[in-house]
Structures are given as structure tokens and as C-alpha cells.
Amino acid sequence: MRVQGWLFLACGLFFAAVDVAYWFWTKAATGQGEPVGTTAMAISVGFAFMVGYYLMFTARRIGPQPEDNKQAEISEGAGEIGFFSPSSWWPLFVCLAAAFAFAGFVFGFWMFLIGVFLILMAMIGFVFQYYRGNFSH
């Protein structure tokens, strides 16, 4: 994980350099810096540093991983990685409910409230999908 952390920190430094260059370039071209692009790139700097910090913090907590060792074999990374859903329809229902709720901003508050209720029901189904049926445990 340490390698990935350094990669994200390096990306954050690159984004910061590009952000500063962009600000100076737009300031020279228009007489004032362009705030939207500069802010968007500053947010990408923050996100890259945030992910890099998290990965470095986690790497320090869990110790060295096989991908951190240059002499590691592929077989050292074998084993269970985690649980991945074989198939689930719930993300589709969550998105449809969210679309319904956002359409409520246009058509009326009553539609928004129904959409929020549908989002809550879909989220409950999404979270508890493995507690019943074929995949219960």
C-alpha cells in the first residue's frame, strides 16, 4: 500500500504544480485568474493528498504488503481479498429512486418526499440483501 500512497501523493504534487501554472496562465491571458478551473484543480489536489494520506496511514498500521516488496512473488499475494457481490439489482433501484427524488425538485415537493421514501427503502434493501434469500449467511 505504501507504493500506492506515494503514487497518489506524487499526483497531488503534480496537480498542485499544474493548478498554480493554470492560475498564472489565465491571469496573464485575461487579467484575472479563472476561478472555476483553479478551484476544480485545487479540489483534485486535496482529493489526491487525502487518498495518499489514507493509504500511507493504512500501510503504516497493517505493515508491509507483498506489493511493497520488490522481490515478492505473485503467490505471496494469493488468498481471500474480500467479498464481492455476485449480482445485485439494488444499485439500480437506488439510482432510480434518486432520479425520482431529484425530479421532485422540478415537479413538486410531494414527489421529492416520495423519492426520499423510495431511496430509504432501496438503501435498506441494498444493505440487508445478504440477510435473506439465496445468499443469506
Rank of each mutant, 00 (worst) to 15 (best):
Q65L: 14
W89S: 15
F109K: 06
V51Y: 03
A59D: 03
F83G: 07
F107N: 06
W23P: 00
F100C: 09
A59V: 00
F57Q: 12
A59T: 01
I81L: 13
A98D: 13
R61W: 01
F14P: 03
S88A: 10
K27H: 14
T26I: 06
S88G: 10
A97F: 00
F102G: 09
G33T: 06
P64I: 06
L96M: 14
G108S: 03
L96I: 11
T30G: 11
D19L: 07
E80A: 07
A78S: 14
Y22G: 07
V45R: 00
F84I: 14
F57K: 10
P91D: 11
P64T: 07
G33C: 06
F102W: 13
G79D: 08
G37S: 05
D19Q: 13
G82Q: 08
V106Q: 05
F109M: 12
K70A: 13
G33W: 10
G104D: 10
Q71F: 10
A28T: 03
V94F: 11
A99L: 14
V45T: 07
F83S: 11
A97L: 05
A97C: 06
Y53V: 02
T58C: 09
S44F: 08
W23K: 03
E67C: 05
P91E: 13
T38W: 04
E80W: 15
W90L: 09
